[in-house]
Design a protein around this nucleic acid. Structure first.
Lengths: 218, 218
DNA sequence: CTTAAAACCACCCGTTCGGGGAATTGACAG
DNA sequence: CTGTCAATTCCCCGAACGGGTGGTTTTAAG
């Protein structure tokens, strides 16, 4: 089966030329495109790609935040960040947000494909000859994060759904935005929030978000 | 000049007997009492005591949160936490919240007075003979925290007032609660919040609180 | 003294929250 | 098939939020 890829970049031209480039391969298939962060998260959930290629700078929601949300909403997805600058301080943020690697936009096509395939295979380190590319592995949190999540759930008796909502809340999303993000009605979101406030013993979303940041999302 | 003390505990009897006990001394004067966390923070600002003695468990706002707010609103105040349990996990929270020490409620009177006086002098370690007391120093953050604060202010071009409001926000307070806390009108709070949202480039209080937790209050 | 910036307060207004009750659906055990 | 339990959705409604405009006072700088 081919590598199923999602491309998120605000420039249609870039997306399409990338798609064109990848049509020349037999093992990589673009299953979704997104023009902004929100759309990217939504499509990641609906199409369940193997890898999401996210531009750091995007309208509505930047790539960092989108990466965080994807990591919690589509746990098995592999994320690669795209950017123009290599010394961007956002590299760190991206990697901490769950990204496996970081690709410069002016990378050589061949190197680019190599990175995609390596990421698919779980290889998180950059090959030594990929000199003009910055790539690094996800911090050793995947398992640890799972554990923290589990402990958190049982500590407060949360359901999976509630935890998911809590992640969204910690990104500062409104009820409306959350509802679109997980494809539920605002009312359902509200109900989950009520349950969360009760279980976490807080009295509003701000306190809940702060608690979430301190205890799980970091 | 005597040591000016604030006592915060929900039990009036406890407060009064403690006051009685301290009247027997010449160097310690109780300048304020509070029955809950909110009142404690308010009186700490108005009376500017040297030391605040906070019960961990209080109505409206617990001692931990009160300690955090005091630390940011009345920087030079020294905080001692009171509790019944010694193995309370809240001890860590208290110390991280800015408390200098932790006193058990069944402590010997003499030891209790010693701790008060030592805290006043800046001695943060427990004397070895205070066996049934748990006391520990404030983590080495006072200077570091100041630095972080300064960097944060210049990074986002914040004013002192705005930073103060941000601290309150990060505790999940409503505009109304903040206004009472710093003795300003709700409208003024709203104005500072608007400025904060703009400068931090966030679009609501939740995002602002999350950012604050990540970058300053930890 | 003048100007500018910060801080403070107020009113209007639309949106969002958050709590309450109640109806619907789906899954699953009895 | 049926009870029932959890998840979802809708409606109502008061409170809180967030944006805009306008105005006064205080502070600092020129």
């Amino acid at each position: 089966m081919p590598l199923r890829l999602l491309i998120a970049d605000n420039e249609r031209l870039f997306r399409q030329s990338l798609r064109k480039l990848l049509e020349g391969t037999r093992d990589i298939r673009v299953v979704a495109e997104a023009a902004d962060g929100q759309e990217a998260v939504l499509k990641a959930q609906s199409t369940q790609p193997d890898i999401a290629l996210l531009d750091v700078r995007m309208p509505k929601m930047d790539g960092i935040k989108a990466a965080k949300l994807m990591a919690s909403l589509v746990p098995k997805i592999k994320i690669l960040m795209l950017s123009i600058h290599d010394d961007d301080e956002k590299i760190i943020s991206a990697l901490r947000a769950g990204a496996m690697g970081y690709i410069l936009k002016d990378a050589d096509q061949k190197d680019f494909l190599d990175i995609l395939r390596n990421a698919y295979l779980g290889k998180t380190h950059a090959s030594p000859y990929l000199a003009n590319l910055t790539i690094s592995r996800r911090p050793g949190q995947p398992r640890t994060a799972e554990d923290r999540k589990g402990q958190f759930i049982e500590k407060y008796n949360l359901t999976e759904q509630e935890l998911k909502i809590l992640h969204l809340l910690a990104e500062g999303l409104s009820n409306e935005e959350m509802s679109r993000m997980v494809n539920l009605s605002r009312e359902t979101i509200k109900m989950h929030l009520k349950a969360l406030f009760r279980k976490l013993q807080v009295k509003n979303r701000t306190e809940a978000a702060v608690l979430a940041v301190r205890e799980i999302v970091g």
